[in-house]
Design a protein around this nucleic acid. Sequence first.
DNA 1: TTGAAAGCGTTACCAA
DNA 2: TTGGTAACGCTTTCAA
Lengths: 343, 343
Amino acid sequence: MAITEREIAEIAGVSRGTVDRVIHNRGRVDPEVHRRVSQVAEEHGFTPSHMGRALALAKNPVKIGVIVHLTKISFFQVVLQSLKEARQEIARLGGELIIKEQRDIDADEQMKLLDELVADNVQGVVISPAQDARVRNYLNDLHQNIGIPIVTFNTDLEGLERLCYVGVDYVKEGRTCAYLMDLLLRGKGGKILIISGHLTQPSNHLRVEGFASECGTHYPNLEIVAMQFNNDEQEKSYEITKTMLRDIDDLDAIILVSAGHTGVCKALEELGMSEKIKLIMFDSLPETDMYLEKGVIDFVIDQDANRQGSLPPKILFDYIFNNKKPEQERVVGQITVKTKYIS
Amino acid sequence: MAITEREIAEIAGVSRGTVDRVIHNRGRVDPEVHRRVSQVAEEHGFTPSHMGRALALAKNPVKIGVIVHLTKISFFQVVLQSLKEARQEIARLGGELIIKEQRDIDADEQMKLLDELVADNVQGVVISPAQDARVRNYLNDLHQNIGIPIVTFNTDLEGLERLCYVGVDYVKEGRTCAYLMDLLLRGKGGKILIISGHLTQPSNHLRVEGFASECGTHYPNLEIVAMQFNNDEQEKSYEITKTMLRDIDDLDAIILVSAGHTGVCKALEELGMSEKIKLIMFDSLPETDMYLEKGVIDFVIDQDANRQGSLPPKILFDYIFNNKKPEQERVVGQITVKTKYIS
DNA sequence: TTGAAAGCGTTACCAA
DNA sequence: TTGGTAACGCTTTCAA
């Protein structure tokens, strides 16, 4: 078992209080004593006990605020679930996670939730920031003037001073999609419909960008014949799919870069086209598994929702509690692909 | 903040000691008092503080023993790394992880290491059991007579009484491989060489089994023209690849179901065949990423090594410390596929 | 600048 | 069958 502050105190011939002051550089200690104590600590490889610290701080635990947006879509429900599990984990370690939910991506609502978190005296914020200058300014102010560290997840924001970003390389996801689509179409290319959500969602347009650029350089006969927006809604997805399949009779494939997974699948099934039309989607969800297994969806390109829920709180807690900075300022998850063989 | 034992004691008008006895059913308490106390606890939704418990138990922390086999191969180096990180996590929670390494898969060595763990008084064991009746008996005895719970990972063992298994469905991995290979060969089929490791390794032959059965039912023109064993060694992989490519001049693809990843890749590169020969491997490793990006490997079918390192200790710790049973007795990870578009 | 002591929520042990 | 108390390793506050 590691050496404790009390033991160091005995060895160095001072009180535990003094040792604590030295360890945490709280000042108010004679330089000579400081030297002696820190040397003893060094020699014995002292590491503060997490449990001891956590217990001592039990009355004012480290408080971390989280804002989850777009909870209306399934992907963020999964993220939310992971966050709730993370809340337990963090509680064990002596921290507190305050989770605020936001059905949509409205910037005003987000700032209101931020106000609430600040009023709650959180010492750190985890957020998928709305793409809005006011949110950026608000967060930068939080960081600069109140010293609250920010961790972004899923979506990043240009010009934001944050501790780190946890997410995925959406452009590369789009590239992956091009590669897989080429395989599905046996290298012969084909006509493709892209269904997207909001224009403002970076994840959506970055995926399209990656797909298009990869097609341009490597798969020139993959042809985007149409692009439609479903506002992340299942009904819209469903309608678009039905309409477009009626209008474009030689369509070969559909790519969905946003939410609205089941809408597309249901439409394809009803039309009996799920065999003929190749289908690639993003973000693995409980409901996509079934359609993968049925063969309606061919591939799901996944960013790990659980990781996005569990990692940011841990990173922030480590930073606040242990003063440990994350190793990278961009923690980008591996891009993985799911097939009908799921398990 | 949750209610504490002390507060319950005050409300119920007894001492904390008594409350503790009630909470943990240690007996030696008047039935009437027991009822009263547990009712108060119930009403206020008492949950014991993890930190308090951990600190109180600091002198005899929960000890968990881990045996990692096959550390000579890269995959288990990754697992080992995750285990070392898990050791830190567990330490924070008030537990201790004792990790024993085994270069190969020898059953005798494994039992020797088990002896050491038992001598160390571990309260739980995480292990990839050797496929050997003596190991099974040893572990079953540990469980039945000393009450030490076992968690298996990566490899399971028939007839073993274990708390749960953390791993992957190897057969389904093999099926996935067939599906992807068919895509790579544009649905036209082809001649395939399979390279395996040991005959005794379940992961190896289960993957082959899954592949073969899926070919039988869905992809009849995928033809296994040869099967070679590399004993999980790079050099052997290299030699086999070179030899077989010389002997079978119309070979279309190679599947590696064991370790020995770089050996195959290097041979293919040297022969200038990396474009022509399709290549699918299992288990993502640091070194496979490079070959994926170069296009030497087409797909890596992955079982999450990090999860296999981090999950079993947590499950066992939760069981011993919090008396919380895992939800499933088979925790099978998702099968994911990696392409050249990695991170 | 330093020391002493109380407290965080448990467990363990001894005395009553 | 109960209560009291020390201990776990640290933080914080008050007093010297």
